[in-house]
Amino acid sequence: MQRYLRVYRKLCEMSLETLMAYRANFINSMGSSFAWGIFSFISIFLLTSKTTSVYGWKREEIILLTCAYSIMIGVFHTLFSRNFERMAEIINFAQLDTFLVKPMDSQFLLSMRWVNYTASTRVLLGIGFLFYFRRIIAIELNPLAIALFFVLLFFGLLLLYSIWFIVATFLIWSPRLSNLIELMYSVSGMTRFPGEMYKNASEYLFLFLLPITLIITTPIKFLVARASLFDVLSLLFFAAVLFVISRKLWKFALRYYTSASS
């Protein structure tokens, strides 16, 4: 709806203004974000320097995966993660009412209120390294493939968002578990590795982590033409199902909140 777009545009502006209001903090955050990205790349580059293939993934593909991870996680942190952290605070300090009284969808307001521009350095880094390594990576660029790739990337993002939101919804029942959100950062970090790695370690682990392993690896596999139909369908399935669950669970949690509080 148009109103949601206009409100979101205003929220983006306000986040930008807040960012500029604190110059020292801005530079520092950019610096941290940038340093983090660089170090991740150096680590992966180093660790895969002597290997030609890891679990069926060629070195170039691992590098591509890392670039894509950087881009995806950068987008996610820019749009969403700070909101989840704040959500823990908001629920813990009983400030949810301010959101519920507004004539807008509360899931939207809570998930998208703040935009963390400093995380966009990871996106830029990802794109930068992608460009730098383009000769090593060397995949055929077919416009349809690229378009579908972005579609899969979108679903990966949707899946990641849904998982986070479902976890955050549990805070309504246990507001003091703020560490739960911190845990999600670690969980997101697990998406940077090929799913096969977890499969090899333990079948049970793999099954448990299945949705997570699909998030980035599937779009990449698609790009290098190694994705099975099963992978793609699983991603779409999980993304759609978990998103619907996140909405239903949130509505359910709100009913609990309005019934059980005073």
């Binding site: 660790l47 890891v54 679990y55 670690s186 970090g189 697990m190 790695m197 977890y198």
Partner: peptide
């Protein structure tokens, strides 16, 4: 979790 991830990563490298 963090240790496990790093562990598996190294496990993967040494499988080759």
């Amino acid at each position: 979790m963090q240790i496990l991830v790093v562990y598996f990563l190294w496990w993967a490298i040494f499988s080759q």
